[in-house]
Write a protein that binds this DNA or RNA. Structure first.
Lengths: 197, 197
DNA sequence: ACAAACTACCTATCTCTATAGTTAGTGGCA
DNA sequence: TGCCACTAACTATAGAGATAGGTAGTTTGT
């Protein structure tokens, strides 16, 4: 159900076409709630059906058209209601940690590759998060910029700081993941011998 | 697909009935890969059908019977293969961080409750992880104990240290989550005023 | 004039998960 | 003897999510 609210969150910044949503999504909300466009388009339709969005058909080129979605009053109300309701706690589901617990079954080489991949993935993810955080700090993030336009300048700091706070949390998680993988590599070397086969 | 390997991991420690599996699961593998028993029973059946497990019917009381599952050679091979294959990277899906990014939409009271709940959940989870870690360190963890029986004593340290390593990673994540929520509460107080309504 | 890349919007299918049940035997205790 | 908690093993169903496509128009560069 969170996808719906992730989409509402994005669309509160400005009206967008489905295509815009799917592009902007991957640069912002997806850092916190990933979804492919095959999930986004049908969900936008359902949200329109449920009255949370309304759409306007906009011409595009000579023959083409596109559909621009805007959040309705009901959409805003639903979003606020979700914001004020208790969070769902996510269950643990971490294949990497599952594997780590049974690393005695792996080939030493595979264990190393595993941990290196994990470390590299999170290092990359961390860099992306830090880059995005920087665009929030200097307010150059495109979605943030259009979002701030609806607000009085006195509110800007408050809005931006919550977004930075969220990214800080993600960055902490990413850093912890990288540090953990690095300790894992040291451990594998110690337990399996340091020869790379 | 990871549920299958989580179950294999557990069953490599000793043969168990479905009921045992679902009980032991929640005290060990579930810390890393949660699953309810309504998923466990059908998956055990499928795994038997696929030749990864074999079952023996054991009498229980006068009329009752139970089915004890043991990992087959094919099951061991599948588990090793999975251990040596690259990990699937999980997509971000964190409703708590999603909400945090849009906290300007929440009532100040709701924002606080939210963060307190998140902090409390992770504090509790952290305590459980630390308690479990301690049972690994002193080797009193029941599943670990039966697991070690199949191995030469020279291997024990290696096996235990990988499990501790996995828990250390989970503990780091939990600690980061708690610290983040606490910073969030300070931020809410600063931005929304410290009066609790 | 044409290709390639991009915009736009889906569909189909399968698997995974969550939630909420059901049915039946066992063991203890009041 | 009856009740209750526990052991045992599911089933049913709906919704979420992953993966892999498809179709059609537009813009840009050569």
């Amino acid at each position: 159900m969170s996808l719906r609210f992730a989409l509402l969150a994005l669309l509160t910044s400005r009206p967008m076409t489905g295509y815009d949503v799917s592009k902007q999504f991957s640069q912002s909300v997806a850092h916190v709630w990933h979804a492919p466009d095959s999930q986004i388009y049908p969900e936008l339709n359902r949200m329109e059906r449920d009255g949370l969005l309304e759409s306007a058909v906009v011409p595009w080129g000579k023959k083409g058209t596109k559909k621009e979605y805007a959040v309705t009053e009901a959409g805003i109300a639903a979003f606020r209601e979700w914001m004020d309701s208790p969070i769902e706690i996510r269950r643990q589901r971490e294949p990497a940690y599952l594997k780590a617990a049974y690393l005695e079954w792996a080939e030493p080489g595979a264990a190393r590759t595993e941990l290196e991949q994990f470390r590299d993935h999170w290092t990359e993810h961390l860099a992306m998060l830090e880059a995005t955080r920087a665009t929030l700090v200097d307010r150059s993030h495109p979605t943030l910029a259009s979002r701030l336009e609806h607000y009085d300048a006195s509110q800007w700091d408050r809005i931006v700081r919550y977004k930075i706070f969220a990214y800080d949390g993600l960055i902490d998680q990413a850093r912890a993941a990288v540090a953990w993988a690095e300790r894992g590599l040291v451990l594998v070397d110690e337990l399996e011998g340091s020869t790379v086969e």
